[in-house]
């Protein structure tokens, strides 16, 4: 087995000019084809991608800031609402307290008033009853006395005497 054919200068009769030309031709052809078919479009799409990534980064940054701003806004709103709610509850409580106090005062006054009027009524009734009883007692006493004396005793004459007696009786009571 001989590999002499692969040794430099051994294979050819002389310098293989056509091989050299073919190498140059095919290499140049390939370079032009690659540039037209692969390199141009690929570079285009890679540049496009770079731009896309860059713009996406900018967009992401913008939307991040936007959402941050919205979050702050919402937080402020929430805080405000909470403060407002607390104020409303406080107000309502205060209002309730005032109303309650008012109602209690009114009721108390009413009660005192009722009580006083009741006491007054009782006193009046009592006095009236006492007066009636006293009248009755005087009449009965006069009747009794006239029965005992057997004669007519003028009511007017003895009135002072009888009332005196009754007063004594009332005191003894």
């Amino acid at each position: 087995m001989s590999f002499d054919y692969l040794v430099l200068g051994a294979g050819g009769t002389g310098l293989n000019i056509w091989d050299i030309l073919a190498t140059l031709f095919f290499f140049t052809l390939l370079m032009l084809l690659l540039k037209k078919v692969a390199w141009g479009p690929l570079m285009g799409i890679m540049t496009q991608r770079e731009e896309l990534v860059a713009s996406e980064i900018v967009a992401a940054e913008t939307s991040r800031k936007e959402s941050q701003r919205l979050l702050e806004e919402q937080r402020d709103l929430l805080k405000e609402a909470r403060t407002e709610a607390i104020a409303i509850v406080e107000n309502a409580k205060k209002q309730g307290d005032v109303t309650r106090d008012e109602i209690i005062t009114i009721a108390r006054n009413e009660a005192i008033h009722l009580k006083e009027s009741a006491i007054r009524d009782i006193d009046t009734e009592k006095e009236r009853a006492i007066a009636a009883v006293r009248q009755e007692v005087v009449s009965l006493s006069v009747l009794a006395a006239s029965k005992v004396l057997g004669k007519e005793v003028s009511e007017e004459d003895n009135r002072a005497l009888i009332e005196q007696t009754i007063a004594k009786v009332g005191e003894a009571n």
Partner: peptide
């Protein structure tokens, strides 16, 4: 034994 398919064209050699 391998030979190369050589040719001669316009006085220049090629493979």
């Amino acid at each position: 034994e391998h030979k190369n398919p050589e040719f001669e064209f316009l006085g220049m050699y090629g493979n």
